[in-house]
Structures are given as C-alpha cells and as structure tokens.
C-alpha cells in the first residue's frame, strides 16, 4: 500500500469513528437509556449475589458469599462490555440500512476492511467508556475484595479477547446482508447463544455436554474464566499464557475469515439486489 492510499484509508477510518461519535452524541437520550439498562442489569446481578445470604448461607461462609458476588459481578460487567461491542459491530449493516445510508457507504472508494475496522474501533472505544462508567458504579456500591487481583493479567486477557470478539461481530454483521428481513433477529439469537454457552454467570462445567462442547469454542469462555481467575485468585500472566494464546489464535483465524466472508456476502447481495431492500 503506497503512502497516499494508506493516508486515504486512514482518513476514512477516522471518518467512521467520527461518524459514530456524532451518532452517539445525537442519540444521547437513547444511549443514556441503554447505559441505565446495562447499569441496572449489572447491579441486579450483584444484589442477587449479595442476597444469597438470606437464602440460607451461613455467616461462617461469608467469604464464599463474597466470592460469589465477585464472580457474578465480573461476569455481568464483562458481558456488558463484550455484548455491547458485539452488538455495535454486528449491527453495522442493520443500522445503515435503517438510516438509508447503506448504498452511500458501500459506494465510497474505500476498502471494506477500512469500513469494518473503523466500525470495530468506534465500538471498542465506546464499549470501554461505558463499561468503565458501570465499573465505577459497581466499585462504589459493593465492597469488593480485590486485594489478590492481578490487574495486568486481567487487562491482557481483556485485550486479547477483543480480537476474536470483533471477528464474531463481523461474522454476525453478515447476516443482514444475507437476509435483509431476518438477519437482525438472527444477530440477537447469536448473542443469546453466546450468553448461554460462554459461562457468563456459571462455569460451563454445569452445562450438558453438547452445550459444553460449543462453549469450549467460544472465545468468551476463555476471557471470562481467565479474567475471573486473575481478579479472584491472582492468576499470573505466565499462567494465563495458554488462554491468551488461544484467544489470539482465535482472533487471527476469525478476523480475516470474517472479513473474507463479508466480502463474499457483499458480492452476493449485489448480485441479488439485496443491498438496498429493507426488511
């Protein structure tokens, strides 16, 4: 890629982030509602764990209760972030179709990779900001024992998980290109399955074996498990390397594969005239 081409693509990349920022700002009331919804969901899970003592757990097992509280809160907080990033990326096409701008964006003289990476970057920035706000509320409202937490390991796992998550998001964003009528609903279904099989609120060992097998190939499983181990038990970076490796490997496979599949889906949509049609 020559310098000029790179500059051109970088400009467009910035354009997508800038556009999303403007959209979030213009739809601020909606965004505030979603933030409140996410916050309430996480707090509900936290209070559910805090209330377990009233269901018969003895005082002597207070430590266990605190561990449960932390276990569930970490799951809820991570799920909020991961599902939000997944949602934003996977709805990139749905949103443009809804606004009526899909043809304008697809007609632009830029690489599709730039388009998708720009959307991913905007989603990541926004996801981190929203998760940080919810995280601060959790820290303020719950007495969390994070003395043994290894923050570095948690952060590295968190970063490594982003790559396969983006791949999954791009894969899901293909669905509305394949089916303008049903693609959006299918994206919700994928999100629901990820919640079920990835061990967000429970270890996947409690799942029946067919679901457990699917859970093993979900990148979210390794992220949630690793981050929990790091924050609850101080998992060292060295000990987390296998999980980090698996996540990076999944990312290296999923991102290019999803971009390639997106390209094929775009060719098909242009052949069948599906780009414009709204559901």
């Amino acid at each position: 890629m020559t310098g000029n081409v790179l500059r051109w693509e970088m400009n467009a990349f910035v354009g997508f982030i800038e556009r999303q920022k403007n959209l979030y700002r213009r739809y601020w009331a909606w965004e505030a509602v979603w933030l409140l919804y996410n916050l309430v969901s996480v707090l509900s899970i936290g209070y559910l764990a805090a209330g377990l003592s009233t269901l018969g757990i003895e005082r002597s097992k207070a430590n266990l209760q605190q561990q449960t509280e932390l276990y569930l809160l970490i799951g809820a907080l991570l799920w909020t972030y991961l599902s939000m990033v997944f949602f934003e990326v996977s709805f990139a096409i749905t949103w443009e179709r809804w606004e009526g701008t899909i043809e304008y964006t697809f007609m632009a003289p830029i690489k599709r990779l730039t388009h998708l990476l720009g959307m991913c970057a905007a989603s990541l920035i926004y996801g981190v900001l929203r998760a940080a706000i919810i995280g601060l509320a959790v820290v303020a409202l719950f007495r969390l024992d994070l003395l043994r937490a290894n923050w570095l390991t948690a952060l590295v796992l968190f970063a490594a998980a982003t790559l396969p998550l983006l791949g999954l998001g791009i894969f899901t964003s293909i669905l509305p290109l394949l089916s303008p009528e049903k693609g959006e609903q299918m994206a919700f279904a994928v999100q629901g399955v990820l919640l079920l099989i990835s061990g967000v609120y429970y270890p996947i060992s409690v799942l029946p074996w067919p679901l457990r097998l699917v859970g093993i190939v979900s990148p979210l499983t390794y992220t949630l498990d690793g981050v929990r181990q790091a924050l609850l038990h101080g998992l060292t970076l060295a000990a987390a390397l296998p999980d980090i490796g698996i996540l990076l490997l999944m990312g290296v496979v999923l991102v290019p594969a999803s971009v390639w599949c997106f390209g094929r889906a775009e060719v098909r949509a242009k052949r069948l005239g599906l780009l414009k049609r709204s559901g």
């Binding site: 051109w8 400009n11 213009r26």
Partner: peptide, 14 residues
C-alpha cells in the same frame, strides 16, 4: 456532520 463523513470517505475532511 453528514458532509464531513462524506469528505472523509472521499479522501478529505481536514
């Protein structure tokens, strides 16, 4: 904002 987005996609916007 719409025109700035268009300018970015077409190599300007600065």
């Amino acid at each position: 904002e719409n025109m700035l987005y268009a300018a970015r996609l077409y190599g300007s916007g600065g």
